[in-house]
């Protein structure tokens, strides 16, 4: 449809940079609004409530609004809380190191050594475990890790074992890996696949050995994605209840188990909230630290 010259001129006059900016700002805000509302309703408000709840008290199994430090003093003063805290951080860190190490060769292969089509299929296959319930996947390990299970039966043929794997920290790590390994491989693969290959080739052409190329070129270039993958792995492991309970035998309990124990015994939701707040603060520190490291400018 033809537009008259007068109308075009008027539209141009109206579209001054200032107006355009304000228009954009309004549009941007409108786009942002749903996520802001969502976060406020389902993250910030519950978080604030959880913090407030940690100061409530329980009387006759009923939570009563109050502002008392009792729960904080009680939980912070207990050795078992700090033992659980140390154990949870330790196990999550170990799981992150193991998962990142195990995932890297697989991701490297998928990113550099296979065709685009194979990579696509591999990523699809890595997503498939998430189709089934995590709890079901954990229970299936019972059959594999039990003393009379598949692994010990196979080791038995060569005169080894049986080894106790269930209800141990090893069991817990296996569970954490079940939860996080596919996700970490996907994140690492996507991160490595985005590296400019000409830089890798240039390193090779200049005589850089393969291992050196990985450490000097590949890893620094994929740093952001790799750190994000590690942060995800830590967060998921740190907050997992299922693996340490069902494969680790709750021996000793991690913080998520301590939360359940605290709620189960005497309905101490406020004390459980104390544990949860400590977990949240820890995860905030790890996440912010991780993201800061991921996006930190490279210093030569």
């Amino acid at each position: 449809m033809p537009v008259s010259g007068k109308r075009t001129q008027s539209a141009l006059v109206e579209t001054t940079p200032k107006r355009l900016l304000s228009h954009l700002l309004t549009f941007k805000n409108a786009v942002r609004l749903p996520i802001i509302i969502w976060q406020a309703l389902f993250f910030i408000a519950p978080l604030m409530f959880m913090v407030a709840m940690s100061f409530f008290i329980v009387r006759n199994y009923r939570m009563t609004e109050a502002f008392e430090m009792k729960n904080w003093l009680k939980m912070m003063g207990r050795d078992y809380f700090w033992d659980s805290y140390g154990l949870t951080i330790g196990l999550a860190t170990l799981a992150t190191l193991v998962v990142m190490t195990v995932a890297f060769p697989a991701a490297y292969t998928l990113a550099f050594k296979v065709s685009e089509n194979t990579r696509r299929w591999a990523v699809f296959l890595l997503i498939i475990p998430f189709f089934t319930s995590y709890l079901v996947r954990i229970f299936s390990w019972y059959v594999i890790l039990a003393e009379s299970g598949v692994i010990n039966a196979m080791l038995g043929y060569i005169g080894l074992g049986p080894y106790i794997m269930l209800n141990t920290k090893f069991g817990t790590i296996v569970g954490y890996m079940t939860l996080t390994l596919p996700l970490v491989i996907i994140l690492q693969t996507l991160s490595l696949a985005n590296i400019d290959r000409s830089l890798v080739e240039a390193a090779h052409n200049l005589g850089c050995r393969p291992w050196r190329t990985v450490f000097r070129i590949v890893l620094p270039l994929a740093r952001t994605g790799l750190i994000i993958a590690a942060v995800f792995c830590f967060i998921l492991s740190f907050g997992d209840f299922v693996s340490p309970y069902y494969l680790g035998g709750s021996k000793p309990p991690t913080l998520p188990i301590l939360i359940v124990d605290t709620v189960k015994s005497g309905q101490q939701w406020p004390r459980a909230a104390v544990v949860a707040v400590v977990m949240m603060v820890t995860l905030f520190i790890v996440a912010f630290g991780g993201i800061a490291a991921a996006y930190r400018r490279r210093v030569r």
Partner: peptide, 9 residues
């Protein structure tokens, strides 16, 4: 309960 948590740890 407290002792039970201590015992588990």
């Amino acid at each position: 309960n407290d002792f039970w948590s201590e015992y588990k740890n």
